[in-house]
Structures are given as C-alpha cells and as structure tokens.
Amino acid sequence: MRLFSKGPEKSIQEYISEAEKRKGSIFLDVRTPEEYKEGHIEGSINLPLHELKKIGSVIPDQEAPVYVYCLSGARSRRSAALMGHMGYLDVTDMGGLLGQKVKLVR
C-alpha cells in the first residue's frame, strides 16, 4: 500500500476495486460542489480542497483508508499531502477523473 505517493500508479477503476476490498475505505472527492453534482464515484464524500481544514469533522478516523480524487489529479495530490501533514496515516491519491473510464453517479 502506498502512503502519500507522488501520484497515481493505477487507474481510478483499479483503485476503486482495491478500496472495495478494504474494510472502512472512504472515497474523498476534493472538487467543487458543482463538479461533484455533475458526476462522482458512488458513495464518495465531497469536501473541496479549499475546505480541507474541516476534514476532521468529515473523516474523524485518521487511520481509515482514504482514497482521494479530483478532475485532473492536481487537487487530489495536494489534498493527500495536506492530509498527511494533518496526521492521516493511510491516504491514497487516485488522481483525476479526466480520461478515465469509471462509472459516475449524480
């Protein structure tokens, strides 16, 4: 398992499959609420990057496996790094949805 890597090593679909096998996994979408409404990974939590300081009230368990994504990968990378500095121990940067074949819900 990668902790705070420099970028995604797998496709988003591969990360989704991995997360579904791990008890307590959380998908965190760090895009804007407007982007989230256009389509997101089922069951994901939306917390925009600019509101990441509220992560403790959204995901209080700092040991939970958290899979972070955005549109291009820039915000997810930054969010994963920030969460590491905040004490989160198991954060995976899934990268961005752009160009990925993944089922989204609205």
Rank of each mutant, 00 (worst) to 15 (best):
S11Y: 07
I45N: 00
R75V: 11
A81H: 12
I12M: 15
A64P: 00
P33S: 06
A74H: 01
P48A: 13
K103Q: 06
L71F: 02
D93W: 10
L98K: 13
R78D: 04
K103P: 00
A81M: 14
E14N: 00
L3Q: 07
E42S: 14
Y15F: 12
S72E: 00
S17Q: 13
P33T: 13
L89K: 14
S11L: 14
A19P: 01
E35S: 05
G87C: 10
E9I: 15
E9Y: 11
Q13W: 00
L97T: 11
K101Y: 04
K37S: 14
D61T: 05
K37Y: 07
P33I: 15
M94G: 05
S79C: 15
I16Y: 06
Y88F: 12
K53W: 03
S72H: 06
V105S: 04
I12P: 04
F4G: 06
E14Q: 07
R106P: 00
E14T: 05
D93N: 12
R31M: 12
S72L: 09
S5P: 01
L47M: 11
K10T: 03
L49H: 07
Y67Q: 04
Q62K: 12
I26V: 15
Y15I: 14
G73C: 09
N46T: 09
L3M: 13
E63Y: 01
R75Y: 02
R75S: 04
S44Q: 04
V66Y: 01
I26R: 08
K54V: 13
M86C: 04
H50Y: 12
H85I: 14
A19E: 02
L3A: 12
R31K: 07
G96A: 12
A80W: 08
A81Y: 13
R75C: 05
H85L: 15
G99V: 11
K103N: 03
G84W: 07
H40M: 08
F4C: 09
A81P: 02
R78W: 09
L71I: 06
G56Y: 09
D29I: 01
A81N: 11
G7L: 14
E18A: 13
L98F: 14
V30I: 14
V30N: 01
R77Q: 06
E9P: 02
V66M: 01
F4E: 02
T92Q: 00
H50T: 13
K53M: 08
H40A: 10
V105C: 06
G39H: 03
A81R: 13
L89T: 12
A81F: 14
K6Q: 09
Y88L: 13
E35W: 06
P65M: 08
I12H: 04
L97N: 05
S5I: 11
P60I: 10
